[in-house]
């Protein structure tokens, strides 16, 4: 079972949470805006490639509906069952550890 890195997990979750079609550009914008971190294009595209190699995501190229793209296709991303399972595993691990925050939160309150 392949390991999922932090950023890879964020990308999978970003794909899953998109209300509209999860195109690559939108995922990157979402990560930059909401994950509070700078996402360089190179790192982002490499992560997509890695996730695809691990079988956690797949993509398909769709004809562009945006005129500014100059006719270049859009990359629509999908999370595979493997990706979903990996994300769930990470969720369990994180929750297990995040539980430690609860008593502290109570103290602070």
């Amino acid at each position: 079972m392949s390991r999922v890195r932090d950023f890879e997990l964020l990308v999978i979750l970003a794909i899953l949470r998109q209300p509209e079609e999860p195109y690559a550009n939108r995922i990157r914008e979402d990560l930059e805006r909401n994950a509070k971190r700078r996402v360089t294009r190179g790192a982002f595209y490499r992560t997509l490639d890695r996730l695809q190699q691990k079988g956690m995501i797949r993509w398909e190229l769709e004809p562009s509906r945006v005129p500014e793209r100059g006719g270049h296709p859009m990359r629509r991303l999908h999370v595979t069952a493997t990706g979903l399972a990996a994300a769930r595993r990470q969720q369990e691990v994180l929750l297990r550890f995040l539980n430690a925050l609860e008593p502290l939160t109570g103290e602070n309150e």
Binding site: A24, L48, E68, R69, G70, M74
Partner: peptide, 13 residues
């Protein structure tokens, strides 16, 4: 790159 054209499109957009 298999999605090379879409990368060019992303940057253009």
């Amino acid at each position: 790159h298999p999605a090379g054209s879409s990368i060019l499109g992303d940057l253009l957009e």
